[in-house]
Amino acid sequence: MLAVHQVSRTFQNGKAGFENINLQLQRGEVVGVLGTSGCGKSTFLRVLSGLDPQFEGSIRTEAERPEEAFGMMFQEPRLMPWLTVMDNVTFGFSKKQKKSEALDLIETVGLQGFEKHYPKDLSGGMAQRAAIARSLLSQPDILLLDEPFSALDAFTKMQLQDLLLSIWEKRRTTTLLVTHDIDEALYLCDRIVIMRGQPGQIASEIFINRSKPRKRGDHRLAELKEEILKELDFTKS
C-alpha cells in the first residue's frame, strides 16, 4: 500500500529530522513507529501526509487517488471551537453529501447525541473521538496517527485504543502510528519500527505474532517490551 524509499528531511544543518528511511506498509497493516524525542517521527508523518513537501527520496502508494490517500490525526484534537461536533467532522466536505456517513462515524466513536455540541462541552477523550471520526470521513487508504492519545489519562487512553482497534477490525485501514507508548504499540500494531539518532534512522523492526485483540498482560508482549527497551538503551543487556 505504501513504499518509502531513501526518504530524508533534515533541519539545522543536518542535525535534526530523519534520513534514509526505507519502509513498506502492506494493505490493512498497522505499523507503529517508536523512538526517543527528536528522532524525526512526527516530521516523518508530516512528510508522508504532504504537509511538508521539502524532502528527498520517493514515496509511492497504491491508492487510486494518491493526492487523497492519507488521513491525519494529530496529538491534539484540533477542533474548531466555533463549530459543532457534526460541523467539525464534516469540515472541508459538503455536509449534505457526507451527513449520513458522518452520523455513522459519530455513532461508531460513541458520540451519538453530541452532534450539536461544541468542543467546550466535550471532555478530552470525547474531543479525540470527534477527531477520529473526522480523520476517517474521507475514507483514507492510509491513516497517519501522531501520538493521538498522549495527552489523555490512562483509562481514557485504553478506551480509545480499544475504539481504534474496533474501527480497524471493521475497516482494515492501513495505519501508521507514531507513539512514545510501548504498551500502546504492542497492543495495536502488527509491526513496530524503532527509530534512533539525530537525524533519526530506522534501527530495527519488531514483528508481533499475536492475533488481535490481544490481552494487555500477555507474557509475550512483556518480553517484546523488554526487547524494545534494550533497543532504545533504557535497560542494560
Rank of each mutant, 00 (worst) to 15 (best):
I132Q: 11
L224N: 05
R9P: 08
Y187M: 06
D162K: 06
M1C: 08
A63P: 03
A130G: 00
E56V: 12
K15W: 08
G32M: 07
Q159N: 15
P119A: 09
L111Q: 07
E67H: 06
E101S: 11
I142Y: 07
G50A: 05
L145R: 10
I182F: 06
M158G: 00
V178M: 06
Q112K: 15
R9N: 15
S58T: 14
L224Y: 04
G71F: 03
Y187E: 01
K95H: 13
F91C: 10
K215V: 09
L177M: 15
R129V: 12
K41T: 08
A154P: 01
R220S: 06
M80Q: 09
F149W: 12
N22A: 00
L177H: 13
G125C: 14
T84S: 15
A130Y: 04
E64M: 07
G14M: 13
T61F: 00
Q201K: 14
T179A: 09
P77R: 10
M72R: 04
I194S: 02
L103I: 14
K15G: 01
L103E: 15
Q75N: 07
A3T: 14
V85A: 10
L103V: 09
H5K: 12
C39D: 01
L232K: 11
V31S: 00
S58M: 02
S42Y: 09
L111I: 09
T173P: 02
I228V: 11
Q12C: 05
I132F: 11
A3D: 08
T43W: 08
A130E: 11
Q112E: 14
W82G: 00
H5E: 13
I194H: 01
L2D: 04
R78S: 09
A203Q: 05
V109H: 04
Q201E: 05
E115P: 11
F155L: 15
R46F: 13
R191Y: 02
L79I: 03
V89T: 08
M126V: 04
T235Y: 02
D87Y: 03
T43V: 14
N20Q: 15
L45A: 08
G200Q: 03
R46N: 15
L221Y: 00
D153F: 14
V33T: 03
T175K: 02
L143I: 14
A133I: 01
P81T: 10
S204V: 04
Q75Y: 06
R171T: 14
P53A: 11
P81R: 06
I208F: 04
R171P: 04
K41E: 06
R220L: 11
P81K: 12
Q26I: 00
L143S: 10
Q97G: 01
T90Q: 12
L163N: 05
R134D: 07
T174K: 02
G40E: 06
W168Q: 11
V31N: 01
D218C: 10
L176I: 13
E29D: 07
E76R: 13
L144M: 09
F207N: 07
R60E: 08
Q6P: 00
L137W: 05
G38Y: 08
C189P: 07
I206Y: 00
C189T: 10
G35V: 11
V85F: 10
Q6I: 03
T173H: 02
S100N: 13
